[in-house]
Design a protein around this nucleic acid. Structure first.
Lengths: 122, 122
DNA sequence: GTAAACTATGGAGTATAGTCCAGAGTCAAG
DNA sequence: CTTGACTCTGGACTATACTCCATAGTTTAC
């Protein structure tokens, strides 16, 4: 799969794919170079890019994701430490959820108040 | 309330408060100037800053918030249109929640797989 | 065999959201 | 009446995450 195809599949630009590579989020485990130096991406690359996209939508930075991936994929941490690392990430996600719930309540109140106002004005 | 006090209360820097002002998120309805040109902030400013903070934690940009605030506070939209606007924002929030749930499931799976691995290795 | 469409690289430019700094004025305490 | 802590302004600087561009090589279709 050449760069244009994977970019289209994931829904990002070609430049973005190359940018992620420069940032160390994609490496030679995700693609091979043919004789003409073209990158040929594997299914693993698809998964990696989907993960990055998911993480970004959830509000994580590329830096955070690179660190988390590194923590998970190397042997610098024991399995228990890896689990502990990811559990901390889960807590961060919970906090983000709480922020969403808070603003949702805020908007809901605003909307209710506006509806009331519409009802009670002649 | 001078700028240092409100910055401390909200938990942002003085520069950030002034930056928000430049961005049109705070105006003379949020503070008055004394003879020495010092800004004196009101409770309304506190509420506005808390809203901005909430919105940012939820992943909205300053631009989006400025637009939403403008839509809500001017008379360019009818009450019904304002409600419709905010309901669309509610949908965006739902999408963000979904992204969080997705990545949470992903992490959960990873963690489970790692636990399995720990159990089954000698 | 050439034009269109693709790939490569390096580097410049953009938007967002601040952060820092210089130079100047203000205020409260001792 | 000076020292230290505060305020003001304008502008330069930073990090993140792209995006665009020039230049050059490659492949596909006619």
């Amino acid at each position: 799969m050449l760069i244009k195809e994977i970019a289209n599949r994931i829904g990002v630009s070609i430049d973005t794919i190359r940018f992620y590579e420069k940032q160390g989020l994609l490496d030679d485990t995700h693609f091979e170079r043919s004789a003409n130096r073209y990158r040929h991406y594997s299914e693993v690359a698809i998964q990696r890019l989907q993960l990055i996209k998911m993480g970004q939508e959830a509000g994580f930075t590329l830096n955070e994701m690179r660190q988390a991936i590194h923590a998970w994929e190397t042997d610098e941490l024991t399995p228990d430490e890896k689990i502990a690392y990811m559990c901390r990430k889960m807590e961060e996600i919970e906090q983000k959820r709480q922020a969403l719930d808070d603003i949702k309540d805020y908007l809901q109140c605003k909307i209710e108040a506006m509806r009331e106002q519409i009802m009670t004005t002649p």
